[in-house]
Nucleic acid binder design. Sequence first.
DNA 1: CTGAAAGCGCTTACAG
DNA 2: CTGAAAGCGCTTACAG
Lengths: 350, 350
Amino acid sequence: MKTKAPSIRDVAAAAGVSTATVSRALSSPDKVSAPTRDAVFRAIEQTGYRLNIAARNLRKRETGAVAVLVPNLANPFFSAILSGIAAVMSEAGYNVLVTDTTPFGRGDGVTGHQFPAFANARHVDGLIVLDGLLPAEALDSLGPPQIRPPTVYACEWSELVDRPRVTIDNVAAGQGAVEHLVALGHSKIGHLCGPPENVLTRERLKGAQAALAAAGLAMAPGWVYPGDFSLESGARAADAWCAAPDRPTAVFCASDVMAIGFIGALMRRGVKVPAEVSVIGFDDLDMASHFVPALTTVRQPRPEIGQSAARLLLERMDLSPATRAASPGPRLVLPTELVVRETTAPPPVG
Amino acid sequence: MKTKAPSIRDVAAAAGVSTATVSRALSSPDKVSAPTRDAVFRAIEQTGYRLNIAARNLRKRETGAVAVLVPNLANPFFSAILSGIAAVMSEAGYNVLVTDTTPFGRGDGVTGHQFPAFANARHVDGLIVLDGLLPAEALDSLGPPQIRPPTVYACEWSELVDRPRVTIDNVAAGQGAVEHLVALGHSKIGHLCGPPENVLTRERLKGAQAALAAAGLAMAPGWVYPGDFSLESGARAADAWCAAPDRPTAVFCASDVMAIGFIGALMRRGVKVPAEVSVIGFDDLDMASHFVPALTTVRQPRPEIGQSAARLLLERMDLSPATRAASPGPRLVLPTELVVRETTAPPPVG
DNA sequence: CTGAAAGCGCTTACAG
DNA sequence: CTGAAAGCGCTTACAG
C-alpha cells in the first residue's frame, strides 16, 4: 500500500480549480478572488497538502537554504555564533545547514566523506564560513563569481580568499589585553597562543607584541606558549610555566577555554591566581564570570557576530551576480570590550 | 549577462551522449562502458558541471537532508550531541538541517517565524528531536505515520508522543548521584532542579528521591531549589542556600552548568566546597574536570548519544512506511557513569 | 551498453 | 481573475 503525500494536483482537483490557481493562492493570495481562495484553503485542509520545497526550489532556481561551515561544532564559542545566524536566517525564511569542517582540509587534508556535503554548498543560496583554514581551492571550486553562492566569512577568514566578512579587530583586542597587564605594572608578560595556522593566532599575538613594544617591553621566547584553543593545551602551558626558571608574571591567553585549562592546572599545583600570575582570557564565555576567580577577558559580541554575518549574507544574496562579482563587499568590524574581573592584579613584589 | 550553471544536458552535449548516460555515469558507473564513462567525466570537468540536488531529490522523492530540532543551540551540552549527529549523518551522505526551537512552543507559545522552517520538516528524510517540549501537535501535524518523516527523540522526549528514542536512564543516574552522597554520610541532601516542565527534571528528581527513600531519608521542601539549567539559576540557588537556616549539606544539581553557577556563587560568598557543602553535577562537560575544585558529576556519553540517534534514524529511514507505522521502534538507553572528583566529601562534623 | 521519453511537483509568463 | 502549457534538472523503467 503505497501512500503518497498529496500534491498540488490533488488540491486543485478537490477545489475544482487549476494547479496554477492553487499555486497563486499560496504565493500571492491577493491575485486570487476571495471565494476561490477559500475553496483552495479548504481543499488544502481537507487533503492535508504540504508544499514540496524541492519542487519549488527546482522551479525557482533557489534552494531556500544557507550553509554554515563550522570548524568545530562542539566548541561553545561557535555554537553561540551559530545560534545568532540561525535566528536571523529562519526569521528570513531560510533553512540553515550545518557542516562541521574539522576533518576537512585541516592537517591531514581533505577526507573524502566530508566532501559531498560541502559540494552541495553549490546548491545552497549562500554560505557562511567560520573556518579560515578551509582551503581556498574548496571555495573557488564552487565556480566563478557569477555562479557560486554568495559567501561571507565570520570570526575567521582566509587571506587567500577575498570575501566580505564580519570579525572583530583581533590586533586591537590583543593589544588592549596586554595594555591592561602593562598598566597593572607587569613587565614580564607571556602569551598562550591559538593554533599556529590560524589567522586569529597571528593577529592576537601581533596585538600583544605591539602593546609590549609601545611600553618598551618584549616577550622572552620561553614565554610564548603553544596552544590550540583546547583545555588541554591550557593545562600543558601551566606545566611549562611551572617548569621554567624565568617566568612571566602575567599571561594573555588567546581563548577563555585555554585560560580555564591554564588556571585550573596552575591552581591545582598550588599556584595562586592572580597573586603569583595574572591571567587574561579571550571571548568572555558565559561561564567566565562564574569562575572563582572570575576571569578577566576580552568580550566578543558573539550573538551580534552571528546576526551581522547572517544579515550581510542576506544583503549579498539580494545583489545580482554581476554586481556581486564587481564589489568585494564590506568588512565589518565589531567592537570588543575588556572585562576586568578577578584574574588580573599587579605583579607580585620582589 | 545571465550566467547559468551547466546542467546535465550541457555535459551530455559536450560528451556526445544522452543525459541518461551522464546520469548513469554519475550514479552507477559500472553500468556504463569505460570509454563512455571517461568521456562523460572529461565533459563534466570541462563544463564545470555540478549535480543539482534539488532536481535529484524531486525526482527520487527524497530530500537528502535530516532536520535536528535543538532546544537551545547556545548550550554546550547540545552542541556536542549535534556534533555526533552531524558526523554520522554526513558520513551517510545526508545534510543536517538545524533549527533552534527555543522560541517555538515554549512558554509564550508558537512564534510565527519559527514555524516555516519546521514545517519544512515534512520535506526532510528524517527528524531528530532533542526538545521534549515541542508540542505533540507540531509533530503530529507532519501527517499520518505513512507520510511523515521518520522521527527519533534523543536526550529528551515527550510522553505524549510515541517515537523511538535514545536517552540515558535519568532515574538511575539521579539515584546513583544521591547514593554517592548518602554513602559519604550525608543525610540532609538537596536538589537543584531543571525547568519544571522538562521530563529530565522529573526523572532526575525521582531518582534522587528513590535513593533517599532507600536510605530512610527525605528531602525537606526548602532543599528543593528551582532551576532552569542556566548558570544564573545556579547562582540563585546559592542565595537561597545561604539565606535558609536549615541547609542541606549536599546538593545534587541537575546539570553541570547549574552546578558551576551554584559553586561559583557559593565560593564567592566564602562558603567552602566541599567542606561546607558537597555538590554533584550532571553531564560532565569538558570543563568539569578543569575547575577548581574539579566537579563530581554524572557523565553522559554525549558523542555516543548523538551518533546512536543518527544511526537509529538511518535504520528507521530504511524501513518501509508500513513497517515503520507498525513498530514503535526501540528505546535505547545508554550508560552513564558517576565521576567522583573534588566537590563531594563527607558532611562537616557537628 | 545506450537512448527516447515520461514524470517528480511546482511556478510563471502568456492568453483569455 | 483563471487556465493551459512549458519547463526547472534530474532519474528510471522500457526498448533496442
